[in-house]
Design a protein around this nucleic acid. Structure first.
Lengths: 143, 143
DNA sequence: CTGTGTGCAAACCGTTTGCACTGAT
DNA sequence: ATCAGTGCAAACGGTTTGCACACAG
């Protein structure tokens, strides 16, 4: 019933390639990230990590996130008025719809919007380096 | 040479209507906001305020921003990795293109993108409460 | 054995808040 | 005269960093 089609990234290989050491805390954190179907923040990752290995510190979580972000293995999202939340950098580019009641994050993708953004930036004399499109919404009540 | 077509909001009237007192610090801050053609952050507003009246505190700037935001007179933007920046809530809704080299903010508007956002949210079963579209770019080099 | 990575505590930065005072109404 | 608003300093929450130790290579 849980048919994950999305490829799980091989973080360990990515790290090895980056020439850094594979330590116990890192392995634990990587495992959590591979399993995460959601967009957890650092504290949430820390809690899940401590449940596996009590010795892990929050600093290490932050340091590992920064490391993974640096090598492009994860994306950091600063949704409004909250801590950064992370997600594996796998699959196609997408944007986010955030449920303002639950904090749930739904991913979506629109080629048309991407094109329009390019056109707009172009017409203003800019090249887009990256962008951020977040919809904050509430589940429509059934009637 | 300074032909401002954009209407300047009458903050003082808005505040009076909100039933709050018009104090000296508030008057100074409101003046700064009316004159600001940019999107200053709290510290920047504070500096401009101190240049006019040395007695003003940063707390008051923050409190006044919160107050103005509450009555809908200004908008707060949390552009990436920086402090909140503010702008008068006048004119049509628009989104922002941020120059990643200078921090300059260019406003733009796209009905088409707004429509597409609505469609997307709708198809996911959500009503949009608000959204955030920010393009981070670099000026195209002339060739 | 070397030096990268770690845990811990302290520092950081933007922002908020408790307090006693000041000043708009 | 009242009490909303203020300046100040301390607290806050998320994140980063300096340090001495630990352990992957």
């Amino acid at each position: 019933m849980n048919e994950t089609v999305i490829p799980k990234p091989d973080y360990e290989a990515a790290l090895r390639e980056a020439g850094v050491r594979i330590t116990r805390p890192r392995r634990v954190i990587l495992g959590i990230l591979s399993d995460a179907g959601d967009h957890p923040d650092a504290m949430e990752i820390f809690k899940r990590a401590v449940a596996i290995d009590t010795g892990i510190s929050l600093s290490t979580v932050y340091r590992t996130m920064k490391l993974l972000e640096g090598i492009g293995a994860i994306h950091r999202h600063a949704f409004e008025g909250g801590p950064s939340r992370f997600e594996p950098a796998v699959g196609e580019h997408h944007d986010h719809l955030i449920d303002i009641d639950t904090g749930d994050v739904i991913e979506f993708q629109s080629d048309r919007i991407e094109e329009l953004q390019q056109e707009i930036a172009r017409s203003l004399g800019y090249d887009i380096v990256h962008h951020r499109l977040e919809l904050y919404g509430r589940k429509r009540r059934k009637r």
